[in-house]
Design a protein around this nucleic acid. Structure first.
Lengths: 144, 144
DNA sequence: ACTGATAGTTAGTTTGTGCTAAACTTGTTG
DNA sequence: CAACAAGTTTAGCACAAACTAACTATCAGT
């Protein structure tokens, strides 16, 4: 009944694979989330602001924006500010929701807000829908 | 009373910085964890086995092992199997504990084992000590 | 309208993490 | 002991994500 060694290895390998793929997505999510927030708060998303919030140089932001544009999440023209495509907006939306859910969940567990925010930043990209559902359930029970 | 914009940006930037640094550590943790497990189970850690469990090619494992050796986590000699340094063993130990804690916590929340394992693989590297403590507390309460 | 400050871009480098293909060891076995 | 299979290593490539330094564009104030 116990699965053979190869199958076990393959399953394990898939998990690592998934984490690696997720990493590809993380930057995109962080960027679109932040871009959405900046547009919302200040009316536009500029390279300098992204850079200062992300803690990287302008050059890095520029580089990344180019990749995100290739990937279809943002549009940008030289010396103009950055906008989200529909796809980018959708990604930003779900990212924000997930981020907030994770933060609230951690706080409901007793973690202080500062740490919750910090941990959520790393965790949010790796939580499956099923686990999110378990988080929601926990919070509902807590309230009820 | 509300902190000025620069301070807010700096705090946020530190969070992203921390996540980026954590990424540096992830591979190391995954490797030493797996190496420890293989040595424990089969008596040695070989390149092929690591490759098959991680879902990458032998060449990639070789490459990474070289880096981990430079970083002081493992020792290896050409055509011989791989060993952990003391530092590597310590890292493997704490990684394994954290991994199991996260898995058990997710399962205690009602997530099924398969998903718990998969999610833990991504999450474990981003959980602060404080949050781990909150996980422990939750599980203790649940049992009690 | 000019000019200096601020913002954005480009070029070139580094490091990490992956790949394939080819070469090389090692150990087994006919 | 020669040959072969399995395992390991090397070389060379590619892309992502960061950096610095140098350049260019924009815009606000005089």
């Amino acid at each position: 009944m116990t699965a053979d060694k190869e199958t076990v290895a393959k399953l394990r390998a898939e998990r690592f694979q998934r984490v690696r793929d997720a990493h590809q997505m993380e930057l995109a999510e962080d960027y679109v989330e932040l871009i959405a927030e900046l547009i919302d708060r200040t009316g536009e998303a500029r390279v300098v602001d992204l850079a200062s919030y992300l803690g990287v140089t302008n050059a890095t932001v520029n580089n990344t924006i180019a990749r995100l544009q290739r990937a279809g999440f943002v549009t940008s023209k030289p010396y103009r500010s950055i906008f989200l495509t529909e796809e980018g907006q959708a990604l930003a939306e779900t990212s924000r929701e997930r981020h907030e859910l994770v933060v609230h969940f951690l706080m409901a567990l007793g973690v202080d807000e500062f740490t919750a925010e910090a941990d959520a930043e790393g965790i949010e990209h790796h939580v499956s829908e099923e686990t999110l559902q378990a988080f929601r359930k926990f919070m509902a029970k807590k309230k009820g």
